[in-house]
Simulated scan of single mutants.
Amino acid sequence: MKANISRWIILLLALVCVVQAASAFDVKTATVNPASGDLEPSQEVTAHYVIAYNMKPGSSDDESFDFSTGLRDPAWTFIVYRDGIPIYTTEKTGYYPSLGAFELAYNDKVELDVQLRGTVPKISSGEVEIVKLEHLKNKHVEGDPYRMTRKVVSAEQVGSSLSVQQQNLKTLKADIDARAADGVDVSAAQAKYDAASKALTSAASAAPSKAAEYIATATKNMDEAKPLLDKAWAEKEVSDTGAALESLDSKINYFVENRSMGGDPKVVSIVTKRESAVQFYSQAKDGLSAKNYQLARSKAADGLNKANEALSDADALREEIGEGFSLGGNLLLYVGIGVIVVLAIVGAVIYRKKTRWDELG
């Protein structure tokens, strides 16, 4: 039992040590200028950090705060505040300054004010480390280091990215125009296209870091335009299928209600095709609801094809039973009536002439 208690005490002490190590410092504020966006080579950068920490004097440990930066020509200013009053200031240069316990260890509440100035290297791998802070004790890192980085973009990178996005914009415009020609409502996608086009125009004349922001804005708008265009296209296809089914239902109703042909094999065939079209139409609407626009278009196309087959059959049947809109089988009737009318007129004329002759004779 005592052995178990001893183990628990050791574990608790170890946990306390871990918590103390992890909380040896706390970065209360971190300010970088420029405040946002990508950096660019040779750009000037300033950074300001306020760090609360706990480092007691008189300790035999070799304890320090080690800083580092990827900025070129870095200049550092360190100020120790005790109860809000500056009590120690030092300035350093170089990429790896260090502050030891003799500079930092105090019993009272203390904070370390860090000011850094430097420039972004001319050659960068896409990211630069603004600052890194490690708490070392007996040459071992305690807790988690603090690290701040920023992306770096060059004029060459911006130029390449701009070219790619300009081509993507052209492709998007072609897709929008193609859908508009098909009668699709492209207004939502067009608005996103206009915003992207404006951003890329601004990027073409901006500095690299600002141009990168414009390109990101344009890319976002183009990415949003694509599903909007797909949605509108799918809605149009589904709507066309629904309209075809409404027309088909009207024609089927004529055969069933007006002509009592519900049992006719040709009407049954038309109804069967109609049911198949309805199934595709239902699947298309489900795809639309699930935002699976490609599936919605595919099923709507299948439904429309099947509905059009049934419509063609219905038109053919209506002509067959003498209810079509063309002259068709009624042509002879119309010709016969015309002949009778002409003969009647000719007969009337002859009769009038004969009567006139009889009167004169």
Score class of each variant (00 low, 15 high):
residue 2 K to E: 05
residue 3 A to V: 08
residue 4 N to L: 06
residue 5 I to Q: 13
residue 7 R to K: 07
residue 7 R to G: 00
residue 9 I to P: 01
residue 11 L to Q: 10
residue 12 L to D: 05
residue 14 A to W: 00
residue 18 V to R: 03
residue 29 T to C: 07
residue 30 A to V: 05
residue 30 A to W: 08
residue 30 A to N: 12
residue 32 V to L: 15
residue 32 V to T: 09
residue 33 N to G: 03
residue 36 S to R: 07
residue 36 S to K: 00
residue 44 E to R: 06
residue 46 T to A: 12
residue 47 A to P: 03
residue 47 A to D: 06
residue 48 H to S: 10
residue 48 H to Y: 07
residue 48 H to R: 09
residue 50 V to W: 04
residue 52 A to W: 12
residue 55 M to A: 09
residue 56 K to D: 07
residue 56 K to M: 11
residue 57 P to V: 13
residue 60 S to H: 10
residue 65 F to S: 02
residue 67 F to T: 04
residue 69 T to P: 00
residue 70 G to C: 07
residue 70 G to R: 02
residue 70 G to H: 00
residue 72 R to W: 03
residue 73 D to M: 07
residue 73 D to L: 08
residue 75 A to T: 10
residue 79 I to E: 11
residue 79 I to A: 01
residue 89 T to E: 14
residue 92 K to A: 12
residue 95 Y to A: 11
residue 97 P to L: 05
residue 98 S to A: 05
residue 100 G to I: 02
residue 100 G to D: 10
residue 101 A to Y: 00
residue 105 A to R: 06
residue 106 Y to K: 09
residue 109 K to E: 08
residue 109 K to D: 10
residue 112 L to I: 07
residue 125 S to P: 06
residue 128 V to E: 10
residue 133 L to K: 04
residue 135 H to G: 03
residue 136 L to R: 13
residue 137 K to T: 04
residue 137 K to C: 01
residue 140 H to P: 00
residue 147 R to E: 14
residue 154 S to R: 09
residue 156 E to C: 01
residue 157 Q to R: 06
residue 158 V to G: 02
residue 163 S to Q: 08
residue 168 N to L: 14
residue 170 K to E: 15
residue 172 L to H: 02
residue 174 A to W: 11
residue 175 D to Q: 14
residue 177 D to I: 09
residue 177 D to L: 12
residue 178 A to H: 03
residue 183 G to L: 12
residue 183 G to P: 09
residue 184 V to L: 13
residue 190 Q to Y: 07
residue 190 Q to W: 02
residue 191 A to W: 04
residue 192 K to P: 00
residue 195 A to M: 02
residue 201 T to L: 06
residue 204 A to H: 04
residue 211 A to Y: 05
residue 211 A to G: 15
residue 212 A to N: 09
residue 217 T to R: 04
residue 218 A to C: 12
residue 218 A to T: 09
residue 220 K to L: 13
residue 225 A to I: 11
residue 226 K to G: 01
residue 226 K to S: 07
residue 228 L to M: 13
residue 230 D to W: 10
residue 232 A to P: 01
residue 235 E to N: 09
residue 239 S to R: 08
residue 242 G to W: 03
residue 243 A to H: 08
residue 246 E to R: 14
residue 255 F to Y: 14
residue 261 M to T: 10
residue 264 D to A: 03
residue 271 V to A: 14
residue 273 K to I: 13
residue 274 R to F: 01
residue 277 A to H: 13
residue 282 S to I: 08
residue 282 S to R: 15
residue 283 Q to D: 15
residue 287 G to M: 14
residue 288 L to C: 05
residue 293 Y to D: 12
residue 294 Q to K: 06
residue 297 R to M: 15
residue 298 S to V: 07
residue 300 A to L: 11
residue 301 A to M: 07
residue 308 N to A: 11
residue 310 A to S: 12
residue 313 D to H: 03
residue 313 D to Q: 08
residue 314 A to V: 11
residue 314 A to I: 13
residue 317 L to N: 00
residue 318 R to E: 04
residue 320 E to L: 10
residue 325 F to W: 06
residue 327 L to N: 06
residue 335 V to W: 11
residue 337 I to A: 13
residue 341 V to M: 12
residue 342 V to C: 04
residue 346 V to I: 04
residue 346 V to K: 05
residue 347 G to D: 08
residue 350 I to D: 04
residue 350 I to S: 05
residue 355 T to N: 09
residue 356 R to N: 05
residue 359 E to C: 00
residue 360 L to Q: 13
